[in-house]
Design a protein around this nucleic acid. Structure first.
Lengths: 268, 268
DNA sequence: CAGTGGTCTAGACCACCTC
DNA sequence: AGGTGGTCTAGACCACTGT
């Protein structure tokens, strides 16, 4: 990161000040008509400095930034946290803070996942985390038009692209209609191919929702990110040619690494 | 997906303890194989209590929770913050913390915005924040297939539903092709109607992206939320029947209040 | 005015990584 | 061992909302 910051004195309306602090760097002053917290001005300053750097480069440690800008480490951490959430920085415990690569764009479309990733020039893999027949919880039952506690096959997978964890995906299927699909998935990587070839089922439409949730500690661990960081939760219900619901999928993507794109056309 | 923690006493591996603290309430113990911070266990505990309450009801103040659970106010705030981000609580400076109403679902479709909201039984309004012809920044120029700095009409509106701020929307149009559209919008509320009636332009397809960003202080002010809270940024490029790009739109929605849904069909 | 959430400080200990 | 980010504490002052 550069050497000096531009702008004038910080420390806007409030707060006790250490009287004899060294000149240190400056974070931009608060503008007039708006209330701008110190951590936010620091964030803007850091954002600009980060813009000059390349992905993967390390930035100074929290303690260094704290002294350089003459603010507490808490304030530095608040600024860094927001830059992490926005996908500009990545932090690793014990290692440091680094400039993040740009976000990746994932298309919402009714085709094979594997196919999508490969089309973007990356190597798709997946790790089966869990495959079990369980009683349908109410949301799953509703989506699949089954009764609550009806047996459903749950398939939980960690999706990777170029070996980087990309999403945690849980698929639910009617365990009676798709008997044995759990075992079959132990040796197959494409659920859609399996549905087509073994169950003569083709998906023709889907409804997908997107919202923001936060990573639990275990989710954060699997996605190699921090607890409490925003994730994008995609849920998808897909129907076959007879308009029967076939799959209900919940996928969690890192919000700092992915954006989604949908193609819309005029309603018929 | 998700996880649970049962159990008793808090204060897992670390931290100095006030020796004579009152019995206080308990937050669930940390489970074995995972590292679960105290604020996260508190969050889970609070999440459960909130589940029993109705939207709009007040919860205890930060200082009360702090003593009740025998943790610092910082820890309480971290737990509350995550519940706010997840849309379970709403905080208002000077007033208190309240149970939030459920998220609203907004459909991604190529029809009038106003129409969409009305269809969901709410009253759509909008406030024109700004209408100016400006030189196209590079991203706008790219999307509209214009040269950088070509004149574009910018229309910035605050969208409301039942008088609640819903989104900040900035639309960009080719100022030469749609000359006068800025003035016309002063007296019209529907851009799409205006395009159809005054410019004989009908939109037939669009590409929409969704990603997470954070609220700046001014955005937070307009959306009546907090600085640094996650927003969903939707960008949309729409094309007419001749496949010319017509509009480029950037909309910011509160991530704690909205989710989005898209309908997909088998690619042709 | 008292009480709320919002910001900020200074310092401590922890878990984790690299050397 | 030493340094990193992650968590937590106790306390302060602020801006804002209600009375």
């Amino acid at each position: 990161m550069g050497e000096q910051a531009e702008g004038r004195i910080a420390d806007a309306p409030a707060a006790a000040r250490v009287s004899d602090a060294p000149p240190a760097a400056r974070i931009p002053d608060a503008p007039i008509g708006a209330r701008v917290p110190k951590y936010y001005r620091l964030k803007q300053e850091l954002r600009q400095e980060i813009g000059q750097l390349s992905p993967g480069m390390a930035i100074p440690t929290e303690r260094v930034l704290s002294t350089r800008f003459a603010v507490s480490r808490t304030t530095v951490r608040q600024a860094l946290h927001e830059l992490v959430v926005e996908g500009q920085l990545q932090r690793f415990q014990g290692r440091g803070t680094f400039v993040a690569p740009p976000k990746l764009t994932q298309t919402l479309q009714l085709t094979s996942y594997t196919q999508d990733i490969a089309a973007s020039g990356r190597r798709p893999t997946s790790r089966l985390l869990d495959a079990a027949v369980v009683p349908a919880p109410s949301d799953v039952a509703t989506r699949l038009e089954l009764r609550v506690d009806a047996p459903v096959q749950r398939l939980e997978r960690l999706r990777l692209a170029d070996d980087e964890p990309m999403a945690i995906e849980a698929v639910y299927l009617d365990a009676e209609r798709f008997a044995g699909v759990g075992d079959a998935m132990l040796h197959s990587s494409s659920l859609y191919a399996l549905l087509r070839e073994q169950y003569a089922t083709v998906l023709v439409r889907a409804e997908e929702t997107i919202e923001t949730v936060l990573a639990s500690p275990s989710e954060a661990g699997m996605l190699d990110t921090g607890t409490g960081l925003p994730l994008l939760l995609l849920t998808r219900t897909s129907w076959d040619e007879q308009d029967r619901p076939v799959e209900y999928v919940r996928s969690l993507y890192r919000g700092d690494r992915y954006r989604f794109v949908a193609n819309l056309s005029r309603p018929a």
